[in-house]
């Protein structure tokens, strides 16, 4: 894996962390919880190198 690709996994991981943190802080909106989880699914599968 080259350096640039590693950067992309880092960017993806950072987004997952930010989304996860926002999800943990979310207290009110079930809508935002669902959306946050939905957005995380493909990012996590990319990090796991599934798709």
């Amino acid at each position: 894996m080259n350096v640039i690709m590693i950067f992309y996994y880092l960017i993806t991981a950072a987004l997952v962390c930010l989304l996860g943190w926002n999800l943990i802080r979310e207290k009110k909106s079930a809508n935002d919880m669902i959306l946050g989880l939905l957005v995380m699914i493909p990012l996590v599968l990319r990090l796991l190198r599934v798709k």
Partner: peptide, 26 residues
Amino acid sequence: SAPESKPLAHPVRVKIVLAVLAAALT
């Protein structure tokens, strides 16, 4: 975001259920 913004009665419980569903779908 959605117009509904009344606080959830059990935010943590709702969150855990949703997270389990999302994990199952993943």
